[in-house]
Design a binder for these strands. Structure first.
Lengths: 197, 197
DNA sequence: CAACAAAGTTGGCAACGCCTACATCCGGTA
DNA sequence: TACCGGATGTAGGCGTTGCCAACTTTGTTG
């Protein structure tokens, strides 16, 4: 392994995913071509097929990894020091930051789940949002939130952040207005939830 | 015009858009092929180029029409009979209904704005959301909402709906749980906004 | 009526995804 | 140690696509 110029690459799958990740980030999912990736890496055009049966499998792998990184990011934010409200705001900021920094990845994550490969990717999405739901459960047990279905609360919260990120990525809201928009959204959300008891 | 079987189609642009609309609805934007559209309509493979310089131009036209229909739908919902809250709920329902019924179109609307053709499409998005912002302005003048930037309020509202629709389209929330989710989101939103004064 | 522009056709090019057949390398086993 | 089989990479081909250029038909207009 690590032998350059050998017949076998040694870690082609990883190399493909790595290169694909940067192409995705820079040019979007539509720009991803198995043949071009192979060329970039210096391998024949059919080599990727050994690791990804078709183009969709590569996209799925990118999505799975994306959900994983999103989950890690949200977990980290959810564990931030401070009171409950502080943590919620931290999660909100982390989500929108992730979603706008990796806009093309975000599009891939939510654009492609419709089709056939539902199982694995859906699980990835559920896992990614688990830490956020956990925060709301904790908020309830700590008495910082009224009782109610934490999943529904969490979904509304995530939906709001997701929507803000999409509006930002579409250029509908200017990026310098993003931070106050998030702050106000979270403020209204927490007030709305609390005044419902 | 209306002459079938003639050398010139007569209304090829409209025919292309119509066919493209159904293909988009049934199979998504990725499945749209200029050559296939031409074949479906019964015209040569290069004919579409006279009306759409490239594939992107067709997608842009579909998006522009989509924003137009969304705007009409939201305008209609905003003009529903009843009190302010009732109208807001009506708009929310209309938006999510549109976004889930035409999931592939929704994806196209918000996926493609990133790139170059910013101007026209951005305007379409702004126009589409205008009726919703108008509702919030009206709510303020009628005293049903506290003072504040109506644009920011409207964006948060739309973002929440957009997020819920995306989560639904991605299969993250079951469709039978969609209606209560919307209701609760609107309820919390209105309460949160009102208790901010 | 002749000229011209708009609209449609034919053919070609390069790139792509996917398939099949073949080459090479590595690791377990006789 | 020799070998053999599976995993990995290569070479080439097929059908489709987007885009381009050259040509034809049609309808309008001076």
């Amino acid at each position: 392994m690590l032998t350059n110029r050998s017949y076998h690459h040694g870690d082609l799958r990883r190399a493909l995913l790595e290169r694909a990740g940067t192409v995705l980030q820079e040019s979007g999912a539509d720009a991803l071509s198995l043949r071009k990736l192979a060329r970039d890496i210096g391998v024949s055009h059919a080599a990727p097929a050994r690791h990804f049966p078709d183009r969709q499998a590569l996209l799925d792998a990118l999505a799975a990894d994306g959900f994983d990184r999103l989950r890690a990011r949200l977990e980290e934010a959810a564990a931030a020091p401070g009171q409950f409200d502080q943590q919620v705001r931290c999660v909100a900021g982390a989500y929108v930051d992730f979603a706008t920094t990796e806009a093309n990845l975000l599009e891939l994550l939510f654009a492609h789940n419709k089709g056939g490969s539902a199982g694995v990717l859906d699980q990835g999405a559920v896992d990614a949002f688990a830490p956020t739901l956990e925060i709301f459960r904790r908020g309830q047990t700590e008495g910082r939130l009224p009782a109610g279905d934490p999943v529904r609360l969490g979904l509304i919260f995530i939906a709001t952040l997701q929507g803000i990120a999409v509006l930002a990525n579409s250029g509908i809201t200017r990026s310098d207005q993003l931070r106050p928009l998030i702050d106000e959204a979270v403020t209204h959300f927490l007030r709305g939830v609390r005044s419902s008891a």
